[in-house]
Each structure stands twice: as C-alpha cells, then as structure tokens.
Amino acid sequence: MLRYLAARIGLIVPTFFGIIFLTFILIRLVPGDPVEVRLGERGIEPERHAALLRQMGLDKPLAEQFLGYVAGVLRGDLGVSFSTQQPVLREFMSLFPATIELTFCAVLLGVLIGIPAGILAGMKRGSLYDHLMMTASLTGYSMPIFWWGLLLILTFSVNLHWTPVSGRIDLSYFVDSVTGFMTIDALLSDERGAFRSAIMHLMLPTIVLATLPLAVIARMTRSAMLEVLGENYIRTARAKGLSALRVVNLHALRNALIPIVTVIGLQIGVLLGGAIITETIFSWPGIGKWLVEAIARRDYPVLQGGVLIIASLVMLVNLIVDVAYGLLNPRIRHGR
C-alpha cells in the first residue's frame, strides 16, 4: 500500500510544477494588461502606463517574473491581488468555505439520490421506472444551469415565497464569520432563526448544483450495476437463496462502486473549482466567480494562485480516490 501511495505522490510533483508554469504563461497570453483593462474611455498616457506596470513588477523579463513567482510559491507566498491589494491566500480562504459548503451539499444530494436511483434502475432494467429515470437523468444532464436556476427562483422564491432568492443568509441576521461555513456559524451565533435561514438559502443552489452530478452518478450507477448483475457470482449468490437486498448490498454494489467513486471524485474536483454559473445566479460568494472576475481584470496573482490551489486540491481528491480504489479493490492496490 505504501509503495502504491508513494508512486501516486511521485506523479503529483511534476504535475504541480506544470500547473505553475501553464497558469503563469496562459494568463499572459490573453490580450490586454491589468492597467489597460481597468481604464475607461479616457485611456492613459504611455509614461503613466509604464510606471504602473513597473509598480506591479510587470516590466521585468518574463523569466525573472516566473522565477520570482516560483520562489514565492515555495515560500508559501502567492502574491497580492492587483485589484484589491489583498494577499491572494487570504482572499481564497475567505471565499473557499462557501464553495466547500455548497459542493458538499450538492455532492451529498447527488449521492443520496443518485446511487439508490441508479441501483433501482439497474435492478429493474427496461421497466417504466428505468425509462423514467433515464429520461430524467438525461434532462438533468443537458439542462442549461442558468435557465434552471432562474426557473426555480421565479417559481419557488418570487411566486410561492417558499425559499429565499439568493445570498447565504437573510440580510437581517448579523452572523460573525468564525468558520466561514454559514450553517455552522449560524448555529454558533445566538441569533434565533439564523440556522434555519442559512439552510433555506442553501436549498435552491444545492438543487441546481446537484442536478448534473446527480444525473451522472445515477447513470453511472445503473450501468455499473447492470454489468455486475450479469456476473456469475451474482447468479451463485442468488442460487444460494440470498435475498435481493443482500445480493445487491453485499455482492453487487461493492463491486460496482469503483466507477461510481471515480465519477464522484471527478465531480468533486469540478465543483471545488467553483460553480461559476450557480454562484452568479445565487449571489454565492465562492471561488468560481472570483476567478472569472480575475480573468476580466487580468489579475495575474489571483488567477495563478487560485488555479494553483484548486488544482492542488483536485490532485489531492484524485489521490484520495486512487487510495479508495486500493481499499475497495485489493487487485488495484497490488498492481494486479
């Protein structure tokens, strides 16, 4: 197991440096510099333009800028945002809990509904339920998120008044940021009703963000189940007279889990990078919106730092998934 882990970690190091290099180069290939893009119609005198670029350290040769950046990263210094003048890491840490909170809820919803729905569809292949589930998941898979989010808002928030429109908590609450997770902070605060408000605010964004993972997980579970249910050992288990539930739980599901865990891991990776559209629709202060705005502002340090942290987290999640494979399936662990 240790050798397996060491090999996986060994792969991470070159990937990490590759990402540093790519983000550094790619953002600089986008036309326009951080000074130019913030200007309106007035423009700027060339001397002042040069002076501002110098202040940001952008007048130095690219190689020198890159080496300075790498040295900073190795020291744990990701630089300072050009637009807010705040350390990138501090900005990231202030926004990331919101992204994690939403990601966690969306994945949880996707797993709690997607896996049972997929198992049932797999077990009842060709039935009305199977067809309905497949149609629903295809719809979820191809639904434009923007349209879906606004539809839910107009129906449940504006017309029915069941849920709030957007934000993380009702504006009348004053909840101190202790952990950054609004649900936990609301519980810790002594404001009555704050926790309920935080939960209500999570509902629509969770549903919207969970739609795609739910569809993917359900479809993957169904096909993995179908494959496993056709195996000889399942027939043997059935022949032994085990109940359908035991056959599924003990024999089928565990063996079908590998592709399902892979898909869940990939979905977490995608969602941790920020769900730009969901965050924008629900005014959710997360990472996705922050990064997209940084592209528009050519805020190089924010983009480089933000992408690097997220990429590192995705690599970590992948590592955990790889380890989970090993735990679920000893053949992978032992390289057989």
Binding site: P164, S166, S283
Partner: peptide, 21 residues
C-alpha cells in the same frame, strides 16, 4: 444600510420582487 452584492441583473430584480432588497 446593507449592500447585498448580486451581480446577475435578473436575480437582483427577483430579490426586489421577493422583498429581499
């Protein structure tokens, strides 16, 4: 006075309609 940052125009209007802003 509270500013609730809501970048999407359609959502801003939904919030006013729902009485959140």
């Amino acid at each position: 006075l509270v500013y609730a940052i809501t970048p999407d125009a359609a959502v801003r209007m939904a919030r006013v309609q729902a009485g959140e802003c």
